[in-house]
């Protein structure tokens, strides 16, 4: 493979789309960015970043376990992330602050299981990096289709939850008094978060999911206080960093996870700087 970045943008894009694996990577990245940008925005609004982080990490034992059992990795990503979301959502809340301890325990146990599965499947070690930090090669047509279906369902569910989710996120007691089933809404949202984390894991790897789930949203909330504008902005930022990251990974020798995270971090710094100057 001999690709060279030039100043001719049309030529660069043509090079990008030359190989089928790269087309699939861009398809998967686009789907994942839209879903993670939208759901990540609500996650930041609800301050559930730690839960989102845990769900993302739990994709790793899921995928490692699936590969060990000879299944498709995406089965493991989605299965584990959704199951973990249900556990976190349905576990009794207990005292304030205890929730994060429960999440932390679940998280470390999940990582330990992932390590066990990797060691049980001896030939798998080369894939460990890809599971943790992402790769642009090897996204199959089937995987793209799974991501598309999961993404459409998740975004549809997010739209259906809509206003009650926003209400419960910023003003839970008032929402409950108005008859919003806040607990149900919370569990449903965690499941959506699990879907978004599982999808994003397949592009950026489990450890770097936050580049797509939290960075675009955190950037967006620094730029606008309008919920709808913020959500759209978060999606746009996620798309831009994904496309830029995938392009950069293609033309360079460095991994995609590094590029996506770097671009996301750069935009976040710019937005923070803008806020500091404007204020």
């Amino acid at each position: 493979m001999d690709v060279q970045l030039s100043w001719n943008l049309v030529h660069d894009v043509r090079q990008l789309l030359e190989f089928h694996f790269m087309v699939n990577a861009l398809r998967a990245g686009t789907i994942v960015a839209v879903v993670a940008g939208a759901i990540g925005y609500v996650m930041v609004l609800r301050r559930q970043s730690f839960a989102g982080h845990t769900l993302a990490l739990l994709g790793f034992p899921g995928a490692a376990g699936a590969v060990w059992l000879g299944l498709d990795a995406s089965v493991g990503f989605f299965g584990f992330c959704i199951a973990a979301a249900l556990i976190l959502g349905l576990a009794p809340a207990g005292r304030a602050g205890e929730q994060s301890a429960v999440i932390g325990i679940v998280q470390s146990f999940g990582l330990a299981c992932g390590l066990l599965f990797v060691s049980l499947y001896h030939g798998f070690l080369s894939g460990l990096n890809n599971l943790l930090f992402g790769t642009i090669v090897g996204v199959t047509d089937r995987q793209v289709l799974v991501l598309l279906v999961a993404g459409v369902v998740a975004l549809g569910a997010l739209a259906a939850l809509g206003r009650p989710l926003l209400f419960a996120s910023i003003d839970e007691a008032a929402a409950r008094s108005r008859g919003v089933p806040t607990r149900l809404v919370g569990v449903a949202f965690l499941v959506l978060l699990g879907v978004a984390a599982a999808g994003a894991s397949q592009v950026t790897g489990s450890l770097l999911v936050f580049a797509l789930l939290v960075a675009p949203a955190a950037t967006a909330v620094r730029l606008t206080a309008r919920p709808v504008v913020g959500l759209v902005l978060s999606v746009v930022i996620a798309l831009v960093v994904t496309w830029l990251g995938e392009g950069a990974a293609y033309f360079s020798t460095y991994p995609i996870g590094f590029w996506v995270t770097t671009f996301a971090f750069g935009l976040f710094l710019l937005a923070s700087g803008y806020r500091a100057v404007v204020k």
Binding site: L161, G162, R163, P164, L166, D171, R178, V180, R226, P227
Partner: peptide
């Protein structure tokens, strides 16, 4: 937005 949620925050979906 907070005031608006008092009006239709319990209705499913988005406007």
């Amino acid at each position: 937005d907070v005031v608006r949620l008092g009006l239709d925050g319990d209705r499913w979906g988005v406007p």
